[in-house]
Design a protein around this nucleic acid. Structure first.
Lengths: 193, 193
DNA sequence: AGCTTATTACAACAGTTGTTATGTTCAAAG
DNA sequence: CTTTGAACATAACAACTGTTGTAATAAGCT
């Protein structure tokens, strides 16, 4: 087991604590305890807490993007866009923890310009991915011409964000099929005809 | 100046600190300093920090609801629904601070069942308000029959949430008119015909 | 084997936190 | 004038925080 693998273990322990206890109660000692080790391990793999925090944020985001890229190759046409958006939704119970961590980070970022900037960057990557997909659909004549693709991409992301946040707060708010129905309803108006 | 007035001043000082520094860096001492007093004032008007926190959460929410109720009486027909939703959006720069506080609270609530429960309750009140409005529109024959009003209300709230969160993170994401356009686009499909 | 480096443990640090107790001020009520 | 209690200040409390340094252990390599 190499350096990066152990590093990932530390981060995963951190995730578990964040989802369970919240980000502000996720201390170095709490992470170490969750990992079943001393704080020495945590400090050995991360210079300070900010580095750990940013790395955790990057990982939880990168995972979604990788999944989305894989899904983009698997599907064709309008379904490609839908399936990519479905991936970001907390359809399964296990997905909710990811969103818990994400929401915790968002709240934690208020008043911390450094973290807000990071979020902007990551949302930008996500938007570019959606814009790219929309452009392809447009080239195939599946969605209307003359659309502001960046705006439409932001709108879809905002919708997914809103749905997911609702589910994090109240899991019974939307069933899996209801979540998907809302996304489909938002995608449909883009279609031609 | 009575007890409740002074109490409100403490809360407003807390809001300012939260929007500027973040919720986890909003200590009793920071609130007192923002208020220009000692911590004695803060502890005098709030038994402990949790009481202060919950009260602040209630205030920031109650304000929106009051505004919404006022708007409900001012407008008629389909515009009533739209204007109520517009009120919740961070259309002006000054509205963003409210949403900053709200997002900070949401993130802070992860891992704190007590706070999550509070959020559920408040979202429930908001939903009832929208459902009520939708029912009126339905009775007037302005929106389609056979709709799951609770579901539609949740969907609209989720959309407003998503848009607002995007703006909090990246203010240039959506202009005021774009935000309104997205809400109108979500309301339109409910219309008859 | 011995040497080197990575990994982990542990203790101590200075600072911050919420909370509590005590002291002070001061205006209104008796 | 005396007394009462609210409003505020101040200081101290124990608990917890991130960080750092040092020592012990394990693993790999020659």
């Amino acid at each position: 087991m190499g350096f990066d693998d152990r590093r990932a273990e530390v981060i995963q322990a951190a995730w578990r604590v964040i989802a369970r206890e919240g980000l502000d109660r996720t201390s170095m000692r709490a992470i170490a305890q969750e990992l079943g080790s001393s704080t020495g391990v945590v400090t050995h793999y991360f210079r300070n807490k900010e580095e750990l925090t940013l790395f955790a944020l990057e990982q939880v985001f990168e995972f979604v993007v990788v999944e989305m890229r894989a899904s983009a190759e698997k599907w064709q046409g309008m379904e490609r866009l839908e399936q990519m958006l479905f991936l970001a939704l907390p359809l399964a119970v296990s997905d909710r923890d990811d969103w818990k961590v994400w929401v915790a980070f968002l709240g934690y970022s208020i008043g911390r310009d450094r973290l807000i900037q990071e979020h902007c960057k990551r949302y930008g990557i996500l938007r570019d991915l959606i814009v790219e997909t929309l452009a392809e659909l447009q080239a195939e004549g599946l969605i209307r011409a003359g659309l502001d693709l960046a705006f439409e991409a932001n709108a879809l992301i905002a919708l997914v964000d809103g749905i997911s946040m609702s589910v994090v707060i109240n899991p019974e708010q939307f069933s899996a099929s209801q979540q998907q129905a809302l996304v489909v309803r938002a995608v449909d108006p883009l279609r031609v005809g």
